[in-house]
C-alpha cells in the first residue's frame, strides 16, 4: 500500500528517516500556563519521536485527567490519542496494547493521576510488565484543581498558601523499583539533554518503562519552600550518570572512552550509554538502584537519570503467549470455530 506523504514541508527542516519533519510531530497550541514544566516535557517527546523516526501512526498516546494529561493534544497530532478518565490511563493502555502489540504506547499521567486515584492501576500495569512508556509529569500538586498537595509532595514542602505538608511523599521511582518495574528513571522537565534520550530509551524498552519527570507547576507550586520549584530542583539535582541513547540504525560516531562508559544493549539492537557513573551503582542491579536513590534522598537531593533497567525484560504478551499477529488483525476465519465445533460442544452437554 502506498501512502500519501504529508505535504506541509517546511524547507528549513530536514525530513527524518521516515520522511517527516519535526512539525509533523507537534500538536495543537498548548493552553497550559506559560512556563509550566509539562510543556517542556511535550517538547522533549516531540524531539524524541522526530529524532528516532517514529511513524506517527505507529504510536498511540494515552492519558488520564489533569493538566499533565492534557498534554497529548500538544504533541503528535498525527497519532491517535486518548484522554481517558482520572487515574485510569493504565487500564486503557493495557487493553489497547492487548489489541495491537505492534504500536508504541506512550502514557502520560500526573502525580495526582498516578499516586492517588490511579495508584491501583499504576502498580498493576507494572506487575504485568505492560509494554509502554509511562511518564508522570510530577509537580507535587494537583494543578488542574488549583494546587492541592499531591501524594508525591515531600514531607515539609511548603505550599503556595504557606502550609507545610505533614505527610511523607510517595516516591514513585522507589515504588516502581520495589514492584520490579523493568525500566525506572527520573528526569527534570528543565533538562532536555537528559530527558530526550531517556524517552527514546524508554520507547525502545520492551516492557514497562517508567519515567518520573519533575515538572514544576509555575502557578501553584513554584514558591519558596516548595521542593518542586524550579530553583529548588535545580539546586538539588544529582545525576546517576550522563545518559545517551543510540538507536539501532545509527552508527556510533562519538568516541566514548571505554573505561568510563557503560554500554547497555537493548532488545531491538539500540543501546544506552552511561558515563560518569557513581561507583556504588550498577543500573542492572535493582538493589544498588534502591540504595543509590536512598543515598541521594538522605542528602535532600533529587536523583535524576536512569535508575534501573532489566535488559532481559519480557512483556505481558510474552507472559500470556499471544500470537505474533496483533489480535486486532485476526480475521473472522481465524477466530470463529464454526458450527462443526459447536456440534461437538453441544454433544458434550447431552
Amino acid at each position: 500500500m502506498s501512502y500519501l506523504k504529508p505535504k506541509f514541508h517546511h524547507p528549513s527542516l530536514k525530513p527524518n528517516k521516515v520522511g517527516f519533519i519535526k512539525s509533523d510531530y507537534e500538536g495543537v497550541i498548548s493552553t497550559l500556563c506559560a512556563g509550566c514544566g509539562h510543556d517542556s516535557i511535550s517538547g522533549a517527546i516531540i524531539q524524541a519521536c522526530y529524532e528516532t523516526s517514529i511513524e506517527p501512526h505507529k504510536l498511540a498516546k494515552l492519558s488520564g485527567i489533569g493538566c499533565s494529561s492534557k498534554t497529548p493534544t500538544y504533541f503528535l497530532s498525527n497519532s491517535h490519542g486518548f484522554n481517558s478518565v482520572h487515574g485510569r490511563m493504565p487500564s486503557i493502555t493495557t487493553g489497547a496494547n492487548m489489541a495491537n502489540k505492534d504500536l508504541i504506547y506512550l502514557g502520560v499521567s500526573g502525580d495526582g493521576d498516578t499516586a492517588a486515584i490511579g495508584m491501583g492501576q499504576f502498580v498493576h500495569a507494572i506487575r504485568r510488565n505492560l509494554n509502554m512508556v509511562y511518564i508522570v509529569m510530577n509537580n507535587g500538586c494537583y494543578g488542574l484543581t488549583k494546587g492541592q498537595d499531591s501524594a508525591t509532595a515531600d514531607f515539609g514542602s511548603i505550599s503556595k498558601a504557606g502550609s507545610s505538608n505533614p505527610y511523607p511523599g510517595i516516591d514513585l521511582c522507589g515504588l516502581a523499583l520495589e514492584l520490579n518495574a523493568t525500566f525506572v528513571g527520573r528526569s527534570f522537565s528543565g533538562d532536555k539533554t537528559q530527558l530526550v534520550p531517556m524517552i527514546k530509551a524508554a520507547m525502545a524498552h520492551p516492557g514497562f518503562a517508567f519515567l518520573d519527570v519533575i515538572s514544576p507547576c509555575v502557578t501553584f507550586n513554584n514558591n519558596k519552600g516548595s521542593t518542586r520549584s524550579y530553583s529548588h530542583v535545580r539546586a538539588h539535582i544529582e545525576e546517576t550518570s550522563l545518559f545517551d541513547f543510540v538507536p539501532h540504525q545509527d552508527e556510533i560516531t562519538v568516541d566514548y572512552d571505554e573505561g568510563t562508559v557503560t554500554k547497555l544493549e537493548l532488545f531491538d539492537g539500540s543501546s544506552i550509554h552511561l558515563s560518569k557513573l557513581a561507583p556504588e551503582w550498577d543500573p542492572t542491579d535493582r538493589f544498588s538502584a534502591v540504595n543509590r536513590l536512598h543515598a541521594a534522598k538522605s542528602k535532600g537531593n533529587v536523583l535524576t537519570g536512569l535508575y534501573y533497567i532489566d535488559v532481559e525484560s519480557e512483556d505481558l504478551h510474552v507472559k500470556i503467549n499471544t500470537v505474533d499477529k496483533p489480535l486486532n488483525k485476526l480475521t473472522q476465519e481465524e477466530l470463529c470455530p464454526g458450527q462443526s465445533q459447536l456440534d461437538v460442544i453441544n454433544d458434550s452437554f447431552r
Binding site: 498511540a60 494515552l62 486518548f82 481517558s84 485510569r88 493504565p90 487500564s91 486503557i92 493502555t93 493495557t94 487493553g95 489497547a96 496494547n97 492487548m98 489489541a99 495491537n100 504500536l103 491501583g120 492501576q121 498493576h124 504485568r128 504478551h317 500470556i320 503467549n321 499471544t322 500470537v323 489480535l327 486486532n328 485476526l330 481465524e334 477466530l335
Partner: peptide, 24 residues
C-alpha cells in the same frame, strides 16, 4: 494464543481494558 485473557485488579480496570482494546 489468539486471545488475551486478563484478570484485572478490579472492575474499573476490567472495563478500562475493554475500552482500550475496542478503541484499538
Amino acid at each position: 494464543n489468539k486471545y488475551a485473557f486478563i484478570q484485572a485488579e478490579d472492575e474499573l480496570a476490567a472495563i478500562g481494558m475493554v475500552i482500550g482494546a475496542t478503541w484499538n
